[in-house]
């Protein structure tokens, strides 16, 4: 790619701990995800009751994105594309939904659960919260794929489909979770390269 871009902010959420730009932002170690997410939401002081209706993948994605998007630019004017991926798609909610229909004596399919059986719903939730009328795409890889993220984010910026790209690896399955998000922009301190992305992911 001809142009140079930068990672202007990044965060991670795993094992009851939230890191923002390399420093601990919040932790509640030992708590299960539901409890941890509730505490993290309160700590973030974002008033958004819809949060409590979301499934685990959406809660995880919402918490990470809110750290990087809150207060950045006026909502609705912010051309920040969402480029997300994970390994388990929406399987966590898929399994829950499947359990609700597999016993014919106890058959209770719920639209409120079914709607979360798509991985891209978490991007919809973030788009609604931050009024992002922007490019959204959800990919599935076996493991975090920094090269694909780097290439595709650069394409979105090179072709003026976006001014910033929020990249997110958002994995959630059976209480195993990890979010790693970073914002790719035209200015910043860390150069947007596959190597730097991988280093931040592992940090």
């Amino acid at each position: 790619m001809a142009n140079t871009y930068y990672i202007s902010a990044y965060c991670s959420i795993q094992s009851g701990q939230i890191m923002l730009n390399g420093e601990e932002y919040f932790s509640a170690e030992g708590a299960d995800f539901a409890d941890f997410a509730k505490q993290a939401y309160k700590h973030g002081e974002t008033d958004y009751p819809k949060f409590f209706k979301m499934d685990g993948l959406s809660k995880l994605s919402f918490l990470a994105s809110d750290l990087l998007l809150k207060g950045r630019q006026p909502d609705g004017e912010n051309n920040t594309a969402l480029l997300f991926a994970n390994a388990s798609s929406s399987l966590d909610t898929d399994v829950k939904y499947n359990d609700s229909i597999s016993d014919k004596e106890n058959y209770f399919p719920s639209p409120a659960v079914f709607v979360y059986t798509l991985p891209n719903i978490c991007m919809g939730e973030i788009s609604i919260k931050h009024k992002l009328y922007t490019e959204n795409s959800f990919f599935i890889f076996e493991a975090f794929n920094p090269e694909f993220f780097a290439n595709y984010a650069a394409i979105l910026l090179d072709t003026n489909k976006a001014e910033n790209v929020l990249c997110g690896w958002v994995e959630f399955f059976k209480n195993d979770y990890k979010a790693f998000m970073y914002l790719v922009s035209k200015e910043g301190a860390t150069e947007h390269t596959t190597k730097n992305i991988q280093t931040l992911y592992l940090s």
């Binding site: 891209n120 990919f139 290439n151 595709y152």
Partner: peptide, 25 residues
Amino acid sequence: EPIVVSNACVSSIMAVSVAKRLVQS
């Protein structure tokens, strides 16, 4: 390694868009 696009009911037409962008670049 294959690339998987799973984006609700736009998945396969989005795949056309992604394919075009990957080739174009």
